[in-house]
Design a protein around this nucleic acid. Structure first.
Length: 594
RNA sequence: GCCGGGGUAGUUUAGUGGUAAAACACUUUCUUGGUAAGAAAGAGAGCAUGGGUUCGAUUCCCAUCCUCGGCUCCA
């Protein structure tokens, strides 16, 4: 069998070509993908007359096209469409670029409302179009010269999905057909094979297989954590507390049920009402808290604060409840009940830079530990912002400056900030290459105003502090989901729910196995003895499937040497070791969080 | 929420208009084993839920719930 190394998260393809060649190759395949989108539209036009066309761009690994079909589309229409496309490709159809006057274009597309909308927005008097056979589309190109350049066996239509016209839910929903396409059949097959591999690291599947958590109809969007899953949470919490104590954070806990007035005061009620769970108690409306911030400020203002108290870093592992739309729930990645590793830092405006810088450093160290590859995004003032524009500008500058100071590459996300302040979000992609927000750093000048927070400065005057909201894991749920996919279930030793299995070869070794277990357990190592009536091979197999980091096989030889035969996850049998030597190794590995 | 798939033992799946099958897991017995499945026997679901069509529905139709992939959303 093939010995596998512990897989790194990115299953990126190996780059063998030079950068220039790679760029050319990418351009070529993207041209093919784009042309395939047109050919798919042509096939739909022929198979389903009267269809109205949206747009059909190139995306990663393929293409899509949006259609407004009179009668929708059934799943068996995909193979039909695919066959029609191959038919067209065989016919050696040329792609011809045509510049047509706007008026003429409008006449040609008079029954195509979506196209007419696009034509209106084209600057100048002429519109660029491409003709391929009987299908004419608005398009700047480029395209292949002829369909004969397209390998007919290297694409596949993969799925049908609904998508709002121009991405707005106020617009009609169109039917989107996704396809993938590659330079040759081998690459296509590689891609398809990779997809099945990726499916194996889906955290939902691993959750069931490894008995970590489950979801049930009785509570959609909320995880039931099983004992083994709880161990992961507890280990993460333990480490989290330790790291926060080091950095001067003070842990707090605030109530889950709160009167809605608190969230009216914070502004959340106005901006976030649809997502808040509410209930009635003796005629008063209570909410399940969707975030911790307003309650954190209550602790802040529970006494008079001096400049000497600042920065005050209040942390909280808070259970939050958010009424997410049913359609967005996704395993551990998007839940209605989540555990946020939150903190609010109350500081003077002068302290902002240092605090932000330290948080960014904290975040970077944290990601390095898990060998995760984070993407930073700076999100600025949204449409529905609260407060003074000048303060916003200042806050945005502060975040930007800190990012630059830490030499962090980041993407700008205009108008994507929270209503109370700009933020730096940190994203990680899952096995399906979808991007998920994990950590966040948000600068807030509004909440201190709304809650009239103050501190007394050196001269005895009342001043307004600034709040920095931040989370490192984001939520334990999402983070564990990401970790499971990242490690394909084979978590690092310190996080593994079960760290070691002891497998006695025969019944006469059971007693030795038991002594070993007691020794390891005494050192707080999570160990189990597998002394059931099954073969060693069977137990090894089960141990591998359960992703147990170390399997210790003990028989006559090991007993004689007072040792253990070690099988390390991902490496196989690494030989016999004296017990003390093995213990030393394990202790180091756990301590180093390797 | 919207579009499109799907829901059959604990798990993974097969299947049918005449009240359901397998593998693994589980229990028992035999086997006491040396690095990815030793053998046998047994128990276990009435097919997500509610309606409808039918002599008869797990199978066909409708609704609801849950779930998956998209879209929108993510304070």
């Amino acid at each position: 069998m093939i010995k596998k190394r512990r897989p790194s998260f990115a299953l990126a393809s190996v780059k063998t070509m030079s950068d220039k060649k790679a760029t050319e190759g990418k351009q070529k395949i993207d041209t093919i993908r784009h042309s395939l989108a047109h050919i798919m539209a042509a096939a739909i036009q022929e198979l389903f007359p009267g269809t109205k066309f949206g747009i059909g761009p190139v995306i990663k690994n393929g293409f899509y096209y949006d259609f407004d079909l009179k009668n929708g589309l059934a799943s068996d229409d995909l193979p039909k469409t695919e066959a029609k496309m191959r038919e067209f490709i065989k016919q050696d159809i040329a792609f011809k670029k045509k510049l047509i006057s706007k008026k003429e274009t409008e006449r040609i597309f008079k029954n195509q409302p979506y196209k007419l909308e696009l034509i209106k927005e084209v600057p100048g008097k002429k519109v660029s179009t491409y003709e391929s056979g009987k299908f004419l589309d608005l398009c700047l190109g480029p395209h292949v010269k002829s369909t004969k350049e397209i390998p007919p066996d290297s694409f596949k239509l993969t799925k049908i999905a609904g998508a709002y016209w121009r991405g707005s839910e106020k617009n009609p929903m169109l039917t989107r057909i996704y396809g993938v396409a590659f330079a040759n059949k081998k690459e296509l097959n590689n891609y398809l094979r990779l997809q099945t591999e990726i499916e194996k690291r889906n955290h939902r599947k691993l959750g069931t297989q490894l008995d970590l958590f489950s979801f049930h109809e009785v509570s959609p969007g909320a995880a039931f954590w099983h004992p083994k899953g709880m161990i992961i949470i507890k280990e993460l919490e333990k480490w989290w507390r330790q790291e926060h104590e080091k950095r001067g954070y003070l842990e707090t806990s605030t109530p889950t049920i709160v009167k809605k007035e608190l969230f009216e005061q914070s502004g959340h009620w106005k901006h976030y009402k649809e997502n808040i769970f509410t209930f009635d108690v003796e005629g008063q409306i209570f909410v399940l808290k969707p975030m911790n911030c307003p309650e954190s400020t209550i602790i802040y203002s529970s006494k008079i604060r001096s400049y000497k108290d600042l920065p005050l870093r209040l942390s909280e592992i808070g259970n939050l409840y958010r009424n997410e739309l049913s359609g967005v729930l996704a395993g551990l990645f998007r839940v209605r009940q989540l555990t946020m590793d939150d903190a609010h830092i109350y500081c003077t405006p002068e302290q902002i830079q240092t605090e932000i810088k330290n948080i960014l450093k904290f975040i970077q160290e944290f990601y390095r530990l898990f060998k995760l590859n984070p993407e930073f995004k700076l999100a600025t003032r949204p449409e529905n912002y609260m407060g003074d524009k000048k303060l916003w500008k200042k806050a945005e500058k502060a975040l930007e400056f800190s990012l630059k100071q830490r030499k962090i590459k980041y993407e700008l996300k205009p108008k994507d900030g929270a209503f109370y302040g700009p933020k730096i979000d940190v994203h990680i992609t899952d096995a399906l290459e979808r991007s998920w927000q994990i950590a966040t750093v948000q600068l807030d000048f509004q909440m201190p105003e709304r809650f009239q927070l103050t501190y007394i400065d050196q001269k005895g005057r009342k001043k307004r502090p600034v709040i920095i909201h931040r989370a490192i894991f984001g939520s334990f749920e999402r983070f564990i989901g990401i970790l499971l996919e990242h490690y394909a279930g084979a978590l690092p030793l310190w996080l593994s729910p079960i760290q070691i299995w002891i497998i006695p070869v025969g019944s006469r070794h059971k007693k030795y196995a038991k002594t070993l277990k007691e020794k390891l357990s005494a050192l707080s190592i999570r160990v189990e003895t597998k002394d059931t009536a099954e073969t060693v091979s069977k137990k090894i197999r089960d141990g591998e499937l359960q992703k147990i980091p170390y399997l210790l096989v003990v028989g006559d030889k090991e007993m004689a040497k007072k040792g253990v035969r070690v099988r390390e996850k991902g490496k196989g049998d690494i030989g016999v070791m004296k017990l003390n030597k093995f213990l030393e190794r394990v202790r180091k590995e756990i301590k180093g969080k390797k």
